[in-house]
Amino acid sequence: MNQQTAQIDAHSAPNHERSPGQPVNHNEDANHALSIRVRDLNLWYGNNQALKNINIDIYQKNVTALIGPSGCGKSTFLRCLNRMNDLIRSVRVQGLVEMDGRDVNDAKMDEVALRRRVGMVFQKPNPFPKSIYENIAYAPRMHDLVSRKAEQDELVEQALRDAGLWNEVKDKLQEPGTSLSGGQQQRLCIARAIAVKPDVILMDEPTSALDPISTATIEDLMDKLKKQFTIITVTHNMQQAARVADYTAFFHLGEMIEYNDTRMMFSNPHTKKAEDYITGRYG
């Protein structure tokens, strides 16, 4: 372990003074307004510590990819950002997750309000057992984002267009969401998430259940959507991270090992572990 740390130290030749949580190298093309600031985040499942001292600054209107071997805590971390971990009874969280100047784990923070601003797309597409139209219109209507039918129609159409699904489904809006193909279902779920106009969209391995063509479609979509939304995606697939992400964070055994500009991460990783992972030595 000590040897490892020593190696990391040997690698890090800091060209500028870095506060914890900032990427090693900055991506010149990326936007750098702060979206979510995470400091000293620890998480336990019962007595198992799943996240250890995570520090990360996530910037707005970028795609940030979280990579790492399975069981490294990247999905758990993602779920901390909109408090989906609250649904698991044995989970205990410590540390700061700050958004818009507010600690999201604060007792006064309403997790329902948080989730409105931090949407989520899941690994397996999970459309509701309703029509395609209702899948999208349901949440905005509940949130009073629309008041008239015409407005609602417009919103549904916009969300489906943004998700690149409109042309495929415009003639069958009343059919059940489950009648679509897997890739279409996943885009429906993305449309559903963007229809409530969140700031951040969390994507938990959104393409792992899909075929390569659908995967490519969704990757293109992420690229388009980052103009409007902050996207944080967990992925198993390093090529995907390299293709879509502006920044990439590498997780291992509950720790965040490296947070870096994606290009730098894949060409010249800062830490030994990240290098080993990226070159396929484990994972």
């Binding site: 909109n82 989906m84 649904l87 329902v112 309000a113 948080l114 989730r115 409105r116 601003r117 949407g119 989520m120 899941f122 397996k124 999970n126 459309p127 509701f128 057992p129 349901y138 949440a139 509940m142 949130h143 779920c189 559903r192 998430a193 409530v196 969390l202």
Partner: peptide, 15 residues
């Protein structure tokens, strides 16, 4: 009813 349904709804900011 699969939990993914519930999570999908909760993640949209539903009570």
């Amino acid at each position: 009813v699969p939990d993914s349904m519930r999570q999908g709804s909760l993640a949209l900011g539903m009570t």
